[in-house]
Each structure stands twice: as structure tokens, then as C-alpha cells.
């Protein structure tokens, strides 16, 4: 019966491309989490009245983040082709998608990290300073743990955005479910393939959202 409704779907290829999508999403989420948290911390700490309060540095980072956040992803991929070729050695394949995925998502996530950090009560930071904590201790033991639910729900949103970015990256040769839908579904007009690719992507998104919500609720002791 499945054969009847989905005559063009090659299940082996579907599975292979699902793995590619998961691979691209997984690596880029991990890298975005680290890079975005770092950027977010810099944005927060250098902002006016904070531990490293420094207007010029804050302005520089803020501008970089704003620029990369504003470039539409499909254009960013094209712009980054030279960089990708240097880093990965090719502009085709799953690994070639990673630099643009990370550079596209990290600034977006950095802003969410900054918002999460701003929500921490200033008094708590003051209390840690009054105990003689170093800035490093304040980052590791106050800022990150106290904002962790916000950081996790932020990375959940970012991860879902990254799933759709991988589909776009697929259109220019990165592989994954996006390229499957594009190459088979659109180019060869096989709508059943597009439909199945969509179903799998939806499943991935639901699972990410579920895991994110679960971890956030476990961490949130407020």
C-alpha cells in the first residue's frame, strides 16, 4: 500500500538524507551553542554598567552580530563560499554547509543569550562580588547556571531554525532532506518525495521542541 501512495520514495535514500540533516543540525547546534553563548556573554559583560563595561568593544560586537543576523541565509551561504572552500576544501556536501549554518545562527542565538543574561537579578551578581568572586567564577557559577533555562529554550528555538536552514543549504548542494525535496520533489515533480521529506522534518522539529521543553522545565527552579 505504501508503494501505491509513495511510488517515487526510495526509503534508503530518505534514511540517508535524514541522517545528513541530523548530522548538519547536530554539529551546527553544538557549535552555535558554544559560539553564541560566548558572543552573548561578551555582549552582556561589555554593556554599560556591567563587569567589563566598555562602550567601543560592545559597539563592535553588537554591529557584527547585527550584520550577520540581517543577511538572509540563502545569500549568506553564497557570500561565504570562498571561506567555506578554504575551511572545508569544497563547497558541496554536508560539511560545506556547516560554516554558513554556524555563522548564520550564532549571532541570532547570541542575542537570545544576552536577553537571558539581562534577566538575571543584578543583586545576585552584586552578592557574588561582595563574597569576593572573580569574574570567571561569576560567569561559571552565577551567570550561566542562573540563565540556563533561558539558554536552553533559546537553543531550542535556534535548533528549529537551523533545521530549516539545512533545508535551504540543501538547495545549493549540501545534501539532507532539503536537497531531497528540491532535487526529486521540485525538479522531477515527485510530490510524494516532497511530502515524505516534510513529514520527517516535522518529526525532527517536534522531537527537538519536546526535548528542549523537558530540559527547560527540569532546570527551572524559580
Amino acid at each position: 500500500m505504501i508503494k501505491e501512495y509513495f511510488p517515487n520514495v526510495d526509503w534508503l535514500i530518505l534514511w540517508q538524507e535524514t541522517k545528513n540533516t541530523l548530522y548538519m543540525t547536530g554539529i551546527s547546534v553544538l557549535a552555535t551553542f558554544i559560539l553564541g553563548t560566548l558572543l552573548g556573554l561578551i555582549l552582556f559583560l561589555t554593556s554599560n554598567g556591567n563587569l567589563w563595561g566598555n562602550k567601543p568593544i560592545n559597539a563592535v560586537f553588537s554591529t557584527i552580530v547585527n550584520i550577520f543576523r540581517s543577511i538572509p541565509f540563502i545569500i549568506l551561504i553564497v557570500l561565504l563560499i570562498p571561506l567555506t572552500t578554504i575551511l572545508v576544501g569544497s563547497m558541496i556536501g554536508v560539511n560545506a554547509a556547516l560554516p554558513s549554518l554556524i555563522i548564520g545562527a550564532a549571532p541570532f542565538y547570541a542575542r537570545m543569550v544576552e536577553i537571558g543574561l539581562r534577566e538575571i537579578d543584578k543583586g545576585v551578581i552584586e552578592a557574588a562580588r561582595s563574597m569576593g568572586a572573580t569574574t570567571g567564577t561569576i560567569i561559571w557559577k552565577v551567570l550561566l547556571p542562573e540563565s540556563m533555562p533561558a539558554l536552553i529554550s533559546g537553543i531550542t528555538v535556534t535548533a528549529i531554525a537551523l533545521v530549516s536552514y539545512t533545508a535551504m543549504a540543501g538547495a545549493i548542494g549540501a545534501g539532507g532532506l532539503g536537497s531531497l525535496a528540491y532535487n526529486y520533489g521540485y525538479q522531477r515533480n515527485q510530490n510524494d518525495v516532497t511530502f515524505m521529506a516534510t513529514v520527517v522534518i516535522l518529526l525532527i522539529v517536534f522531537v527537538i521542541q519536546f526535548i528542549g521543553d523537558f530540559i527547560t522545565s527540569k532546570l527551572d527552579k524559580r
Binding site: D121, G123, V124, E126, A127, S130, M131, V142, P145, E146, M148, L219, K221, R222
Partner: peptide
């Protein structure tokens, strides 16, 4: 030189 605060300033986590 320790300090206590009006709004306690405890780490909720």
C-alpha cells in the same frame, strides 16, 4: 566583610 541584602539575592538555581 560579608553582606546581606534587602532582597536576599540568593541563587535560585
Amino acid at each position: 566583610i560579608s553582606m546581606i541584602f534587602q532582597h536576599f539575592n540568593l541563587l535560585w538555581s
